[in-house]
Design a protein around this nucleic acid. Sequence first.
RNA 1: GGCCCUAUCGUCUAAUGGCUAGGACAUCGCCCUCUCACGGCGGUAAUCGGGGUUCGACUCCCCGUAGGGUCACCA
Length: 445
Amino acid sequence: MTTVITRIPPSPTGRFHIGTARTALFNYLFARHNNGRIVFRSEDTDKTRSKKEYEDEIINGLHWLGITWDEFSRQSEHTSRHRALLEKLINEGKAYISKEQSKNDSSKTVEIVRLKNPGKEITFNDIVRGDITFDTTELGDFVIARSLDDALYHFAVVVDDMDAGVTHVIRGEDGISNTPRQILIQEALGAKRPAYAHLPLILDEKRAKLSKRSGATSVMDYRDEGFLPEAIVNYLALLGWNPGGDREDFSLTELVDVFSLDNVQKGGASWNRDKLLSVNQRWMRKLSDTEYLVNIKNISPNINSFDETLLTKTVPLLKERARTFSEALDMLSGELACIFTPPKPEHDILISKEPDNARGATQRHLETLISKIDSLPNEAPADIIKTTIMPYADKEGRGEVLWPLRYALSGQKRSPDPFTLIEILGKDESVKRINTSLAILVNNE
RNA sequence: GGCCCUAUCGUCUAAUGGCUAGGACAUCGCCCUCUCACGGCGGUAAUCGGGGUUCGACUCCCCGUAGGGUCACCA
């Protein structure tokens, strides 16, 4: 039994794309599940488009997701090896140098290298799809290098995979049509054919291949928006694969345990932000309150302007509402802002629910509530507060008591329930706020 | 257009010849409830079409249809 070796070969010509992350993830899961090795190779042979910053982003992003590898290399470091094999093929008559007019600059003549195509049918087995057959004659003598020192992608990949001992090529479905040409190169080189698995593509809402035009396609955008790496991994793994049951909640290590290429889907899967949001919320809720706050701080350092104690008490409310950390951040200055900033209640809203004798009744309720809150022990939890207040509310009418109370505390038509608010704000601040509303009632007389 | 791949609720999917076709997200309704959110319960919703094979097809075969991918001196 030979060791499984997979590869993660991103080209650093753009940001860390979701598709790159998904392919990397499946290579990672398959290799780790089989106690194999993973080779990371930066496919940087396009000198004009490759950028170090992209490579850094991809590496950082992969690590952020928890994806690791055992070997690191850059394709550009292998040019002498490529040249040697190119020369070998030419000497053996399997490839030849061809003087042609440059396609990029028609005034120039260049010496490119073409593979002598035996022109036969190639059938390869795809783990996901079964046998796939191509007639390679239509490919002709295709170009494998711009020059002896400048191999093209197909040639470089085949050589590098061969040298790294790659046993399984797991990549996107868009690689299917590249496969016969790569096999032709392998055969010319006498390389062993690896196993292939072509993953279904991730599609956008319009069911086209996910591209820059499809919206946020960089994993880093999701990180910056406050998504958890665990959620991205969990969601990505289930796009085009599933272990066969109803379970949907998987950490990276759990995925390694159950992963298999056998149950990879064949059809493309479309990206669904709503589903991702719900997966993310599930993972956010698993965090401790402290971890939760750290994550909010990571996306917005100026959260420090909020009172730390109040912030900590607010986390449970955020957990039940926010699906991303940026949503949580928005809530702190939106629907939960009343916790941090004393409200400015309006007279008419305070009593708007009351029919007649409204003002007098509301005033009486609020005064009663103040004395009840005063009688509470310090740091009383919401359920104690509730049992203290509810009998009175039930007697006088819940809406007539609870609405002014909650509105006095929050100044908002929509807010968390009054008991929770009192718990978070504390006795003193709560009474203070109710008194403010009382004053508004009286002054409007 | 040539070649290749694919086809179960709106979306992600389960069911690999034998069930009222299951789950999740979304959606709708009810309950909880002063509001919001959470939560609980329930509903709507799918095997692309036509032929075979078979006692029996979501499942196997063929033909259509539709969608996608790929056709570089990019990777």
